[in-house]
């Protein structure tokens, strides 16, 4: 995408959002069928964060993701078949089916990895930004992390260093209101976006239900990083419609709050921006893509115990 366009065409946005949404719903069905060997953390309701941010990125930009990262991977251009195969424990998966959802990486599309360690990506993205800066590349690094990760030491260390060295990194805090089974009010003090100010770089809060707003804010942050002006902290206010993991009854959640988020669902709103026939064509396209991915994955051999590494 050219650098002066802040939001991709509506059809593209809808296609990407729907891919993230339906990919996870399809994987969850497979999980319930007993075909997913590991745990699954879904980002249902959070799609606009990944799609909006990645709309501002090039293929050569890099991201780090989290334990809840399918949408980041897909938005950055990871291969749907290889992701599906990895989640279904197949040898054609990104990691030969050995590792599953929390350990997907594709450096060829700038995806340095999802991560089982909360906050683990913060120093890595900072290091990637350092590497890009030293090599004089005008690519940027984006670090996705949950609001829970702002409590880690890594968060403070990464922000300080990125500020000091004016690194080309965008810290994207995906505030989905929960860390595991507890609401963020019990584990995050103050406002996340305001922490940037103390380090002397911009902190911005944006509505994660509005993919255009996320894309615009990301565009600005990425442009700043590319220009050599240093980091930005984006706090995207979103909501985790799923439980912490598939199977979590999420009894701790306020149903009215969840419904309020569903009522302004970014995927539904993106669809409403399109003519019905165009939207229906995209719906079909995504269903075909995912059904094929599942079929091809299930036809592939299961992960091989001889291939431990």
């Amino acid at each position: 995408m050219p650098d002066d366009v802040t939001s991709p065409p509506p059809a593209d946005l809808y296609r990407r959002l729907l891919l993230c949404r339906r990919f996870e719903e399809v994987v969850a069905e497979q999980y319930r069928e007993g075909r997913v060997p590991g745990p699954l953390h879904l980002a249902l309701g959070q799609e606009a964060t990944a799609v909006g941010v990645c709309a501002a990125l090039r293929r050569t930009d890099v991201i780090t993701s989290t334990h809840r990262g399918h949408h980041h991977c897909l938005a950055k251009g990871a291969d749907v078949d290889r992701m599906m195969a990895e989640l279904l424990g197949r040898r054609t998966g990104y990691s030969a089916g050995r590792n599953g959802s929390m350990h997907i990486a594709d450096p060829d599309v700038g995806l340095l990895g999802t991560n089982g360690i909360v906050g683990g990506g913060l120093p890595i993205a900072t290091g990637a930004a350092f590497g890009l800066q030293v090599q004089g590349r005008d690519d940027v690094a984006v670090c996705f992390f949950g609001e829970g990760a702002t409590a880690t030491g890594n968060f403070g260390e990464a922000l300080n260093l990125a500020a000091l060295w004016a690194l080309p990194v965008v810290f994207v805090c995906e505030n989905n209101r929960f860390a595991e089974l507890t609401p963020s009010s019990t584990h995050v003090a103050g406002e996340v976006w305001q922490r940037a100010e103390a380090y002397g770089f911009p902190g911005v809060r944006v509505d994660g239900g509005d993919v255009h707003a996320v894309a615009a804010a990301s565009h600005e942050a990425v442009a700043r990083a590319r220009a050599g002006d240093g980091p930005t902290l984006l706090e995207v206010m979103t909501y985790r419609l799923s439980g912490h993991y598939v199977g979590d009854p999420a009894e701790y959640r306020d149903e009215a709050e969840a419904q309020a988020w569903r009522d302004r669902d970014a995927v539904v709103r993106a669809r409403a921006d399109l003519a019905e026939t165009d939207a229906a064509a995209i719906d079909d396209e995504i269903e075909t893509l995912l059904a094929g991915a599942v079929e091809r994955a299930l036809a592939a051999p299961a992960a091989d115990p001889e291939e431990l590494g």
Binding site: G97, R98, N99, G100, H103, A302, P305, L308, G309
Partner: peptide, 16 residues
């Protein structure tokens, strides 16, 4: 255990 990283699928885990 085999000197290898812990995999995710349970049959691979047990093989290790």
């Amino acid at each position: 255990a085999e000197f290898a990283n812990v995999p995710t699928p349970q049959d691979l885990v047990e093989a290790r």
